[in-house]
């Protein structure tokens, strides 16, 4: 925890909402603070490097709560966490917030820049505002919830994670998505699911256009069931029967000269 002792701005309190104090000399390793309290990190005072070093130094099973103040759109906030921490970011995050997250629950009370939760392995990332491009790109596991809208290429190259977008999602969402589920409660932009593999897409609103090899598919009971579970997990109460399902027609799985017009 050397990084935490190095500089002002990271404070330990015993209550979740303990006010930030400037405590240059208080070692954060104090176990009382670590087990029952919230560690408050003010990015007006410490660097992203110090924050991330502290998050990475948490022991494997740690459930410590962190509250990050004044994120000011910094990049790579809370990236690379490996422990089941509970991190709340109060404000807007830049690129790659919670990138490659494993196990942690990260909540962003603001908007998120490009690539939020990119390549997430497990855990949960919740964006209270809007998310920019490539949200959840290549994510392998876990749940990404975006209450607002998502930009272009949401869930691009998705590899097993679940994404629930409360609002609209931009063009080329789920491009080449391999596995996992993308739920869009608003409208979807152009070329939805282009070159899709095995990921499943649920859209409640209008789809501007479907990409190559993406087709509408029958909504069977098991799909309504999984959609309902996803919506519940995302804390939403949309009616699953209002959604349509899209998936791969699987006609591009083998390179064939007759497909040349599709690409």
């Amino acid at each position: 925890m050397a990084a935490l002792n190095a500089k002002n701005g990271i404070a330990a309190g015993n209550e979740p909402d303990a006010p930030t104090a400037t405590v240059a000399d208080v070692p954060l390793g104090a176990s009382a603070a670590r087990h029952s309290g919230t560690v408050t990190v003010d990015l007006a005072e410490v660097t992203v490097r110090q924050l991330n070093a502290a998050l990475h130094a948490e022991p494997a099973g740690s459930r410590t709560r962190y509250r990050v103040l004044n994120p000011a759109g910094e990049h790579a906030l809370a990236a690379g966490i490996g422990a089941p921490l509970d991190v709340r970011i109060d404000g807007h995050a830049g690129y790659y917030a919670a990138g490659m997250n494993m196990r942690a629950a990260v909540e962003i009370h603001g908007n998120a820049g490009t690539g939020v939760a990119e390549n997430m392995m497990s855990g949960r990332v919740h964006v209270r505002g809007d998310a920019s491009q490539s949200a959840g790109a290549t994510a392998h596991g876990g749940l990404l919830v975006i209450d607002g809208n998502a930009g272009a290429r949401c869930g691009i190259s998705l590899k097993g994670a679940d994404i629930v977008v409360g609002g609209d999602a931009g063009h080329m969402s789920a491009f080449m998505a391999q596995a996992g589920r993308l739920v869009i409660c608003g409208d979807a932009g152009d070329a939805l699911g282009d070159s899709l593999y095995e990921a499943r897409i649920y859209v409640r609103g209008r789809v501007a256009s479907l990409g190559a090899d993406c087709v509408e598919k029958e909504m069977r009971p098991e799909h309504r069931q999984e959609l309902s579970e996803l919506l519940t997990a995302a804390g939403r109460d949309d009616d699953p029967s209002a959604f349509r399902r899209y998936g791969s027609a699987r006609t591009l799985y083998h390179f064939h000269v007759d497909n040349a017009r599709a690409y």
Binding site: V48, R49, N52, A53, H56, H75, A76, A79, G80, G94, Y95, Y96, G99, M100, T114, G115, E118, Q133, S134, A137, T138, R153, I156, S157, F175, M176, S195
Partner: peptide, 27 residues
């Protein structure tokens, strides 16, 4: 098929941020 473009960055300005993220993740 392996993609020809990275899914979450385009151009050198993005790449700089991507590299920083990789450095952050690996301390």
């Amino acid at each position: 098929r392996s993609a020809c473009r990275h899914p979450d960055w385009t151009g050198p300005d993005d790449l700089a941020i991507k590299i920083t993220e990789l450095r952050e993740i690996t301390d």
